[in-house]
Computed example of a mutant assay.
Amino acid sequence: MKSAVLLVAMLAVVGTCQVSVAAAPCDKPVYLTFDTGHMGVAPLVAEVLQRQQVKVTFFLADEKTLTGGSSLDAQWAPWWKARAAEGHVFGSHTLDHVYWRADRPGGRFEMRPSAGPQAGRSREMDGAAYCAELDRSARRFTEMTGQHMAPLFRAPGGRTSPALLAAAQACGWQHVGWAPAGFLGDELPSDRYPNAQLLQRALRDIRAGDILVAHLGIWSRQDPWAPAVLEPLIVGLKQRGLCFATLAEHPTYRAAVQSGSKP
């Protein structure tokens, strides 16, 4: 009888501990973000995030995929809808992955998309046109998921100017960069930056508060980053006492995410 009582008490303690661990706040967060890419590693990324119970922020552009479609087409819509249902956060990466190249007179910008019908062709855009490009990604996200995008964006390549950021801010978009240590290197050539080296560097240098950036597939990298590095990185950072949060919890972006959505 005493043994049974002791067993019940032990189970009660275990149950309490489990609840306590699950409810523990994320007091040393890092913010993992993914930009779109050729989507070849997207299923793996989703699997790892689910297994590790990590929420991230995705930045969406409609880029060419390995299967000949694009990252926001009908084939990928169910994938994005599933990620939205899991509670990740989403921002714009411009629909046609439009790179800023230079400021021009009269509040205009020289831009060059790497996707879409004008891929590879430079053209000038004013602030309103750039905002419309950001909005196009948000509308496509809503079409795919039924949810709304956060008013956050990442310029392709991180290339911006103060004038471009001001134009985006004027129409309600806030830019998100990344920490120096948070550049995970998945777009670097793998012969010079092997996965083991990138993992070691990230585990050594990343600190609480850092925004991390990776991609859902990089065309130029021969040895894909995500299969070798993503899960060991997450596990290793957790072992260092760090935890993962979305940009909805970041002190710089929290208010913007809570105050509005796009489109």
Rank of each mutant, 00 (worst) to 15 (best):
T160W: 14
A170T: 13
V13D: 04
L233G: 02
R140S: 13
R204H: 09
E133A: 11
A42W: 02
H88S: 02
R254I: 15
G157S: 08
V14P: 05
T142S: 15
A84Y: 06
A22Y: 12
G37N: 03
D73W: 09
A179D: 07
L72A: 12
D27F: 08
A84Q: 06
V213L: 01
D135I: 10
L72W: 09
K238H: 07
F109E: 03
Y31H: 11
A202P: 02
R108L: 05
A9Y: 10
H215I: 01
T57G: 05
Q18M: 12
M10I: 13
P227L: 03
Q200D: 14
A84I: 02
V213K: 03
G15W: 10
V14H: 04
V13W: 07
F59G: 07
E231V: 02
T160H: 14
T252Y: 15
F109Y: 10
Y31N: 06
G120W: 05
R140L: 15
I211G: 02
H93N: 02
G217K: 00
V13H: 05
K55L: 10
L184E: 01
L164F: 12
M111A: 02
D27V: 06
T142I: 14
V229Y: 00
E47D: 10
Q18V: 11
V45W: 00
F109H: 08
F59P: 03
Y253F: 15
R51K: 12
P105R: 08
S3Q: 15
D35Y: 02
R136V: 12
R159L: 15
G217I: 02
Q258F: 13
D223W: 05
F59W: 06
D27C: 03
M39W: 08
V235R: 07
L237A: 06
L66Q: 10
L216F: 04
A46D: 07
R121C: 10
A167K: 08
P180H: 05
A4H: 14
A163T: 12
R240D: 04
Q52D: 11
Q118N: 14
V19M: 09
F183Q: 01
A23Q: 14
V21F: 11
G241E: 09
A170P: 13
A24E: 12
R154V: 07
Y99R: 01
